[in-house]
Amino acid sequence: MQYSLSVVIAAGRTIVDGSAEGHVWLVYPRDESAPDLERVEGGPDPALTFPCTGVHFADGSMADDVTLNWMVSSVTSIPQGRPVPVPLTPDQAELADRIRELVSSATSLQGQEDILAASFNPQHRPLGDTRLPDAPGTPRDIDGRPITVFQALTGAYLVPILADITGPAVDDGVIYPAQYGSPDALTEGWYWSATVDTAKPGIHEVILHVDIFRPAVRDGVLTFRPVRFQIPTWLDVRAVPAVNGFTGAGLGYLPLPWEAPAAAPAAATHEGEAHA
């Protein structure tokens, strides 16, 4: 069985805060049978714990594969491949005040001096309205509007990229992750998937390494650089006994009732059919 895990990140806020903590949600089909986890100090975050249920044979060994597929997106990223690209230039005007504070202290945003020198001009317009010179390569949104540096400052419309999966779950052989390529245009061909050893029950930590794009200015041209964030998530691995899906009981032959085969109809004739 395959499970899809959607990881939703508030990318803009992650860039501004320098950390993804508090800005990540896990979205997955609800499993009513999975018990709710309690929040324990220093323990896994129940909101970022995925209940992964497998099936086992009577001797406890794994009966079937469980495959996980991670789909990472941000709140403002453009859904890939679908006929619904939206003008996802997010509202960042209120963040301008916070950005100005951070920029003036120049400690929370590392390496932003090049952006400040290229774009921040306090004598003319507020940071939120600053635009790059209309040089070739000016990035524009779906509606053709130039993307302001402020909007680009958080690179919020670009899709975050899942770059790696590590952690105790990988080290302990609970999951075997790998990046796969596929012709599927919806994921632009790359996605992370893992098979799960559900014979190892328990809560295991999975660290997602996600690249979120942040703008940089080089010679007046806006480019985007990935900034890597580590996002701890957890897998709550459990297994239930494998049962016969028809009977709900143990595995084995299906208990079909035996019927004598029906007698061949004597009087029936078949049109157009030659009999030997």
């Binding site: 959607s6 939703v8 508030a10 949600w25 979205v27 089909p29 609800r30 997106s73 709140v75 403002t76 939206v86 003008p87 996802l88 230039t89 997010p90 509202d91």
Partner: peptide, 26 residues
């Protein structure tokens, strides 16, 4: 611009005939 991003569990919705418990919005 304000973006509302809605994730729908299509399989759950089709299985139960309703969107209850199948919509997650940001």
């Amino acid at each position: 611009d304000v973006i509302v991003k809605i994730y729908v569990d299509v399989l759950e919705a089709l299985q139960h005939g309703s969107l209850s418990g199948a919509v997650f919005a940001f």
